[in-house]
Simulated assay, not measured.
Amino acid sequence: MAPSPASPADELLTVRDLLRYAVSRFAAARLTYGHGTENALDEAAFLILESLSLPIDDLGPWLEARLTRAEREKLIALIEARITTRKPAPYLVGKAYIQGIGFRVDERVIVPRSYLGEILATGALGPDGLGLIADPMAVETALDLCTGSGCLAILAAMAFPAAAVDAVDLSAAALEVARLNVADHQADDHVRLVQGDLFAPLGNRRYDLIITNPPYVAAAEVAAFPPEYAREPEMAHLGGADGLDIVRRILAGAGDHLTADGGLLCEIGTGHEILEAEFPHLPFFWLDTAASESEVFWLNAEALAQRG
């Protein structure tokens, strides 16, 4: 009888072994990244650490750790699944992180990676940052449009502890995931999930702060997506011919849903020149983050009240 073929699990014994193996396999497969990592090494490290329930911020202490046979087989299966399915790594492990805060994800929602996460989690809007919000405790109502997994609504509740946060999404399936995240973060008393199309389900409600990371990818770019991005819900990306159709609708309606001292924080991708040319009367204030430049804007209620 011919000997059974050797399994990689027979020879890959440590975290370092599995990391090297994964990086080599990912590089050979020419995967696409961008769902929390930007290269094969970081992707492999995330998969390994998260699947072993280890802290994801530092691989170093674990490199020489020997793994059980079951752990090795589990990791090898995940590595192969990343290649054969082309699913983003967060879908394979059911978890994504923003500023070190974990959120459940699956294919009902886009993988969280909004630049707004950094702005909210670091307090950049407050008096010690840009000063756009003088007193975070004075924010009593907030709205997260296109909430998806609910991550930004939850981060807003953390950043503005006195605020009641409404989180709206058109997708009932996405709100099922958001509901799990709200429960995980014990935010049920602060975050209300609402199904509907932008402002439509909110009546005449007004908010001290509106945040939104709407679909903003141009149709041609969506059509050319690599498999990893195509795995996400198309409606979470598609923003019309130039990507800004939903942003325009938000600009048209936000003024009617802000309090007198309120403001709109919106992520739009790379379309700032289009918006500035189309809305010359609006004094867009562009915010940069560690990974973006002029892809997030702020407008206050007074500016949005000018119909121009």
Rank of each mutant, 00 (worst) to 15 (best):
L198K: 14
Y33Q: 06
L282W: 09
P214Q: 09
V182W: 03
L180C: 08
A81N: 04
I56R: 15
H237E: 11
D208R: 03
D189N: 10
A173C: 06
F225R: 04
V165F: 01
M158H: 13
P215T: 02
V23W: 05
L258R: 10
E234W: 00
D58A: 06
T270R: 14
V168D: 07
V105N: 13
L275C: 02
L49P: 03
F297S: 04
R86H: 10
G126H: 09
A223Q: 08
Q99E: 15
I268F: 09
V194R: 06
L251F: 13
A178G: 15
K74H: 15
G243K: 02
E293M: 05
I211F: 14
P112T: 13
M235P: 08
A29D: 03
R86G: 10
A29M: 09
E278T: 01
P90R: 03
E71F: 00
L304W: 02
G148C: 09
Y115T: 12
G243D: 08
A159R: 01
A183Y: 11
G255D: 10
E73C: 04
D166F: 03
T259I: 02
A303W: 12
L152P: 05
T259C: 01
C146Y: 12
A96Q: 09
A260M: 08
R82N: 07
L209D: 03
D10K: 12
T68G: 15
S7P: 00
A260S: 14
T84A: 12
D242R: 02
K87P: 04
E276K: 02
F285A: 06
A163D: 00
D128Y: 13
S292M: 06
A172H: 14
L209H: 03
E107T: 08
A45W: 11
V111G: 02
A167I: 04
A96G: 09
G269M: 06
V191F: 03
H237P: 07
I250V: 10
A230C: 11
H190M: 10
M1V: 07
P283K: 04
A45F: 11
G100W: 12
K95E: 15
L193D: 03
D197Q: 08
R25L: 14
V139M: 12
I110S: 08
G94P: 08
D166N: 05
G262F: 00
R20K: 13
F284L: 00
E295N: 14
S53W: 07
A156R: 01
P227F: 04
G203W: 04
D208V: 02
P55D: 11
L304G: 02
L238D: 14
V15F: 10
F199G: 06
M158N: 14
P55G: 06
P214Y: 08
E107F: 00
R82P: 06
A174E: 03
M158L: 13
N204G: 06
P161A: 05
V15R: 15
H281K: 13
T289N: 14
E71K: 04
N39F: 11
V105W: 14
G271Y: 07
T122A: 14
L59T: 07
R86S: 07
P127Y: 05
D169S: 01
F284T: 02
T122E: 15
I48N: 11
R192Q: 09
Y115Q: 13
K95I: 12
